[in-house]
Amino acid sequence: MPSAPGFLFLAFLWSCTCFHGTDSAAKLPPSVSIPQAYKPLFGQKMNVSCQGYTTYPSSGIIYWLANGTFVHDLYSEEEVLQEDTIEKANGTGLILRRSLIFRSFTTKDWCTTFECIVVDPSGLAQKTLTWETSDPADPKLNREKKPRKWECTCIGKGRMPS
Rank of each mutant, 00 (worst) to 15 (best):
D120T: 02
D109A: 08
I61G: 00
F7K: 14
G43N: 11
T107Q: 08
G52I: 12
S24R: 06
P161S: 02
L124M: 15
G43V: 01
W150S: 00
S24I: 07
E87R: 13
C116K: 03
W64G: 01
L96Q: 01
E77V: 05
L141V: 12
E78I: 01
L65M: 14
P2T: 12
K149N: 02
F70S: 01
I155R: 07
I86S: 12
E151L: 09
G158Q: 04
E132W: 01
P139R: 14
Y53R: 06
L100Y: 06
I61E: 13
P5R: 15
I34Y: 08
Y75W: 13
D120K: 02
S33M: 09
L41F: 09
E132Q: 08
E115R: 15
Q51E: 07
T113W: 06
E115M: 15
C50Y: 08
P2V: 11
V32T: 12
R159E: 07
G156K: 05
S162H: 04
A137W: 10
K127I: 14
N47R: 11
C154A: 06
V118I: 03
Y53L: 09
G68E: 11
L129Y: 03
L13F: 13
W64L: 03
I86Y: 15
M160F: 03
A4H: 09
V48A: 00
T69M: 10
Q126L: 14
C18T: 05
E77H: 05
F12A: 12
L124R: 15
L65E: 13
W14E: 15
I61A: 03
K149P: 00
C16G: 12
G91R: 09
N142H: 03
L10C: 11
G68W: 10
F7I: 13
S31I: 07
G158A: 02
D138T: 01
P29Q: 12
C16D: 06
F19C: 08
Y38R: 09
A37W: 11
S3F: 06
A26L: 12
Q36N: 04
F7E: 14
S49F: 09
